[in-house]
Design a protein around this nucleic acid. Structure first.
Length: 584
RNA sequence: CGGGGUGUGGCUCAGCUUGGUAGAGCGCUUGGUUCGGGACCAAGAGGUCGCAGGUUCAAAUCCUGUCACCCCGACCA
């Protein structure tokens, strides 16, 4: 392709409403343009890079035994009713009605395709002999994000690779899951991403039934923890801490329980300011409704409660913060003044709460807090639990050093679904003994656009983007110094033809621009290899090769250049492939 | 949905406080000189100042409403 014949609107200045690097650079490099909040057009370069990501995803899916199909984005709302997800999605589901034969027909744009694929399989697959099977597609998904943001990182319309496996047993599910997990590792490393598989919240099956693939990045929306020894990584929603349960005894330094006036102070911040104490001296008393029974959950004032951990510790199906009426019933006080002393419901406490001596808590009466609250004397718990979010510096649950909390961009998710959808939509198979069973499912998603955005976010410098060879819009940019000079122009044209004949993925910057402009643009877009023709070098029979990721250029003879470039590309390709885990 | 911010040529922004005929740089067009890291000279084109209403002799500027976009939070199978 010739630069003059395509559409690459690069920008010198950073657009005002782009804040994070990937957004700024993808706009400036002419990869994308915004249509409205959460909706972007992919311009020629962006689309080309995106198609390369898709090709890698397809390749690895096929290698892992998944079969490509294509389902409609248009979905009957009825299917979501059958699985209960109409309510679960709420406003996120884009639904609308169309007129057909005078009737209103409700439809939705698919946010994901568990329902559609399960319905398909339910209708056409019946026997254990046809299983396991894994179907996938690469398709545009729609989610009405309440707040699209971060450029192309979080949009209301995005391209997703979604795969769904169906099997007869947990063993079959495990086997597909492992294959997909490995395929994902290969996809992300082939794309040149530094990625981190983390344990994620896993729903009904539990255990290691869900992993997310994260790109560590300062602007990532998710928080993940990883251990210094590298043995443990998990989403913060899920992450355990390796804290050892302390022995519970009343502190020897316990002072006399007192009540202090704290008018209107219902938050940790307000109370600590009024009483001039550190939040870590406070005990937060959160009243939860666990399967409709009230429970008081004690968390240190400067810590954050983790509802998944609380739910598991209580063995409850679902928990939510109690409503004001329940809180008043168990505390006898308005919301904001709950404390463990004399509370009329069961109490559970985090490990870090039971060791606080002379703590401050709500007094279970309006506008008052207790000071010098001590365990065993003023309130009673017999064991403590891991109930809070992990923090940097916590011990790893695997015993390999300490945890660190980092931000991450979620680019993939593998999940053991179990039978939730197969039961709801009657996707059943007949076994050898003519017994009917619901199929056991898994689902596996990749955010295709996020791979691109993630690369832009993590691979750039002051000059612009820096694509890996595997994803770059073009692998090589061929830059004639001066197209107005016949000798230079002819040399570039004949090289361009030779590159194309050799199958090199090349863009010829044939614009009549000064060299500085072309170099700046080449750096901004981030083509991996730049070949410069012209000037004194050309007269000496040399051209310049410059890799985007290296500081120095090299001069090589014009004679035999195609072979030289092919060799350099092959070498670079091998370097990039060195980190890709072997396929099994 | 709560809080904050911004809307002025394609892009970045000034002008608004204190109302008085819309500006700069970049980009674009034409001609010329240039040509190894975002050139220079000259001449041009391009804007209902987000939209609607109000105040006023007069509104980009003041007031009211509204829309869009960005950021923080809530939310996110």
């Amino acid at each position: 392709m010739r630069w003059s014949q395509t559409f690459i609107p690069t920008l010198k200045e950073t657009p005002a409403d782009a804040e994070i690097p990937s957004h700024q650079l993808m706009l400036r490099a002419g990869l994308v343009r915004q249509l409205m909040a959460g909706a972007y057009t992919y311009l020629p370069l962006g689309w080309r890079a995106l198609r390369k990501v898709e090709a890698i995803v397809r390749d690895e899916m096929e290698r892992a035994g998944a079969i490509e199909i294509h389902m409609p984005a248009l979905t009957p709302v009825e299917l979501f009713e059958q699985t209960g997800r109409l309510a679960a999605f709420g406003n996120v589901l884009m639904k609308f009605e169309v007129q057909r034969k005078g009737k209103r027909v409700p439809m939705a744009l698919g946010p994901t395709h568990e329902e559609v694929v399960t319905d398909l399989v339910a209708r056409h697959i019946n026997s254990f002999r046809q299983l396991p099977i894994c179907l996938y597609q690469i398709q545009t998904k729609f989610r009405n994000e309440e707040r699209p943001r971060f450029g192309v990182l979080r949009t209301s319309e995005f391209i997703m690779k979604d795969a769904y496996s169906f099997g007869t047993s947990l063993e079959q599910l495990d086997a597909v899951y492992q294959k997909m997990y490995r395929a994902y590792c290969r996809v992300f490393s082939r794309c040149g991403l530094e990625y981190l598989p983390v344990e994620a919240e896993s729903g009904p099956i539990g255990g290691d039934a869900s992993h997310e693939f994260m790109i560590p990045a300062a602007n990532g929306e998710d928080d993940v923890v990883r251990s210094s020894g590298g043995l443990y990584a998990a989403n913060l929603e899920r992450a355990e801490t390796g804290r050892t349960p302390p022995t519970i005894t009343t502190p020897a330094t316990a002072a006399a329980l007192a009540t202090v006036a704290t008018p209107g102070a219902t938050s940790i911040e307000q109370v600590s300011r009024i009483l001039k104490i550190e939040p870590s001296q406070l005990i937060k008393t959160l009243i939860y409704s666990a399967d409709d029974k009230p429970v008081a959950v004690l968390i240190r004032g400067d810590h954050e409660a983790n509802e998944n951990k609380i739910r598991r510790a209580l063995g409850a199906k679902s928990i939510k913060l109690a409503d004001p009426a329940t809180i008043e019933a168990v505390t006898g006080a308005p919301v904001g003044f709950a404390g463990p002393v004399g509370i009329k419901c069961p109490i559970i406490a985090d490990h870090d709460v039971v060791v606080i001596a002379n703590a401050v808590t709500g007094a279970n009466q309006a506008d008052a807090h207790h000071t010098n609250v001590n365990i065993g004397r003023d309130y009673e718990v017999t064991t403590s639990h891991d109930l809070r979010n992990a923090l940097s510096g916590d011990p790893s649950p695997r015993g390999d050093g300490t945890l660190e909390v980092v931000h991450g961009i979620e680019v993939g998710h593998v999940f053991k679904l179990g039978t939730k959808y197969s039961v709801a939509l009657k996707a059943e198979f007949t076994d050898e003994k003519e017994q009917r069973h619901p199929m056991i499912m898994g689902c596996y998603g990749i955010g295709v656009n996020r791979i691109l955005a993630g690369l832009a976010e993590t691979r750039h410098d002051a000059g612009g983007l820096c694509w890996p060879l595997a994803i770059a819009p073009y692998e090589v940019v061929l830059v004639p110094i001066n197209v107005a000079e016949a000798e230079c122009k002819e040399a570039a044209e004949s090289l361009y033809a030779a590159f194309q004949n050799a199958g090199i993925d090349v863009l010829l910057d044939d614009r009549d621009q000064r060299p500085g402009v072309k170099f700046k643009d080449a750096d901004l877009v981030g083509f991996p290899l730049r070949v410069v023709v012209g000037g004194k070098s050309l007269k000496e029979g040399l051209v310049e090769l410059k890799w985007r990721h290296l500081a120095e250029a090299t001069k090589v003879p014009l004679v035999g250049l195609v072979e030289t470039v092919l060799k350099e590309l092959a070498q670079r390709r091998a370097e990039e492939a060195a980190n890709v885990p072997a396929a099994v």
